[in-house]
Amino acid sequence: MKNKRKLGSKIYVALVMVFLYLPIAVLILYSFNDGKTSVWKGFTLKWYYELFNNSAIMTSLYNTLIIAVLAALVSTVLGTLAAIGIYNMKKPVRSLVTNVSNIPIINPEIVTGVSFMLLFAFLGTLFNFEMGFATVLIAHISFCTPYVILNVMPKLRQMDYSIYEAALDLGCNPRQAFFKTVMPEIMPGVISGMLMSFTYSLDDFVITYFTRGPKFQTLPIEIYTMLRRRISPTINALSTLLFIITIAILIIVNVWERRAEKERTA
């Protein structure tokens, strides 16, 4: 009876995994297909060759990375400072600020996107500029910073405030005391906030779509445009590479975390 139930559980988990990974597996498989349709015509690497020679994709990849790095850095600084300030506010004001800060998280993405478009279009006619790199970066910082605050805030609450005071008593100036006591305590929250910002920025399509203007391309936008034109297996090659890079990063992060854990317990 127990074994039967166990078998049932295993089959159920396996079915869900097939559902989750069959599409990805097919996507990867077709990236090696020497034909444009879904009929298998033999193994080829030509789509990968085409991918690396596609300057539009390479440019948009570069744009995506620049935006993600900058957005992650700025929102981490902005968000960490904000979290410290909000932490020191009294209850009603703090709740109000936190709620407003969470708007980009709760609000449907498309509404956030169009609201940015209205603002930038208005400012654009006022100051005569076109949407592009800068507006996308500003939008990304805006929707990433709330996640940094969400990650840093609990660490501030967990922190023992007396260690900061102890540092002051022992002769640190406030700045030294902050960097020697507070910063190490909240660092895990800062790092996870930064990583979250980086991945959200990397992956964003909707908000970029509304703030990018006529020329600026990021990778998700480029994928969208390519699919509009015609389905080409180059996209499959791109998906495959992105998937492999993701797995590699996850494995590295995991190994790194486990090592850090070991060092802590040792």
């Binding site: 995994m17 599409p23 990805i24 996507l27 998700p220 699919l227 998906s239 993701t246 996850l250």
Partner: peptide, 19 residues
């Protein structure tokens, strides 16, 4: 394994189903 597909852009995931 459940989180991994979330790291793939949603347009690509939808495109996989089109295929």
């Amino acid at each position: 394994l459940i989180m991994l597909p979330m790291w793939m852009n949603f347009i690509l995931r939808i495109y996989a189903w089109v295929l």
